[in-house]
Amino acid sequence: MNEEKGMTIIVKTITRFTVWLIFLYGLYIIIHGHLTPGGGFAGGVIISLSFVHLTLAYGKDFFLKRHKISTLHNIEAGGALAFVIIGILGIAWTGSFLANFISTGKLFTLKSAGVIPLLNIAIGAKAGTALYLVFYYLVTHRSFIQKSESEGEIK
């Protein structure tokens, strides 16, 4: 019964090949946010789109069978918390909130710009999981409506 949920076998097979490419592209966009266009928001949303892709192709129970939904809540809150913690570390090192307390390094290299890549990763985790959770709740909520309406018809 569960196997028949989602789309056809063609879509499922193609999804198996494409979803990792989308996920990797999102990670690339986040990590290179200080060198190329993109950054935390765009990369986070691309990662969440890869999960949306998976959910649309395999049905809404596919994700919940493997992971708890509270894990995503934890990642989202952890991203926001990491942003604030990095800001407070800036107070401890240099005396102002969200100051750049790591050395800025050499321009045009991946290990540059001090604290900016860390903040990008925090924002990516937060925005990506939050927007996927909105999609997930909208999808699962619709099933409650349909169930209640069909029950109402039976009564």
Partner: peptide, 9 residues
């Protein structure tokens, strides 16, 4: 948009 959509539902 997400908040408005959930309110509309």
């Amino acid at each position: 948009t997400a908040l408005l959509a959930s309110l509309a539902i």
